[in-house]
Amino acid sequence: MSLVLQIERLTKDFPTGRLGRGRHRALDDVTLALSSGEVFGLLGPNGAGKTTTLKLIVGLLRPTAGHVTVLGHAAGARPAREAIGFLPEHPVFYDHLTAEELLAYFAGLCGMTGPERTRRVSAALDDVRLDEARRRPLRQYSKGMLQRVGLAQALVHDPALIILDEPMSGLDPIGRRDVRELILRLRDAGRTVLFSSHILSDAEALCSRVAILSRGRVVARGAIGDLTSKHAGGWEVVAADLSPAAATSLQQTATRVTRIAHGRYSFELPAGERPEPFIAAVASAGGTLVSAVPVRATLEDVFVERVS
């Protein structure tokens, strides 16, 4: 797989204060690389630096340090932008245009003309399932429909790298499902997709790899399976027929105890601890083992741990 996007030691400072003499570091020493056919999730809480990273890739911002290349071209250069399709967060377009006119305008700016332009406009609108509404002025569109138009304009020139800033924002459940399917279709067609989100379930469903940003720094990166397996999980043991005194005694070795029903408790054991001694303690306290299952870490666990 060839390298599509390379971000090396990217740092971005913004001026602060009335005279702009102060500095706020929005992005600090970020390094990432994306290959073709990959769906990559840029995750993080609000203000983590996700949008700043995407704008630096597109060329809307200039880095304070480090550099970005898209298919070997410097970010912001015309060949780099030819290779990028960008959906900004909360996209806003020209009210007086229809979706078809908007896409024809943008396709023209991408160098397309004649029948090729018409074909690409139609294909992009089909991709986002914008049917009869495509000839209506954008001022009549709902937020979700504008999001679809935003996606269509990002795809109209069939770019190699598609950058989506919060693509699920403003979409209803069906719209979100459509976007998820679209992203997977793009991946299957060999396109590289980079999207930012704070909706972790979307990332888990779509991404081959993710990076978690917090306060401008990458605090975790890698395949979701690797990240969650590295995140140490304990065991959950459920026992029945326990007296309150026995449960209190067993609580000493558990990280959390939940009373499920009369005499029935759930115990969470600390990470790294084997369950056998605890199961033996349950038996000696007169209890009955109901289940003992390893706790699998989720992306959310990794996210919460790394961000906090």
């Binding site: 809307l60 960008f86 943008f106 700016l109 160098g111």
Partner: peptide, 14 residues
């Protein structure tokens, strides 16, 4: 102001 510039300048227009 209306942020339409983001999508537009992402296209290969100088």
């Amino acid at each position: 102001e209306r942020r339409s510039i983001y999508s537009l300048l992402a296209k290969p227009v100088a």
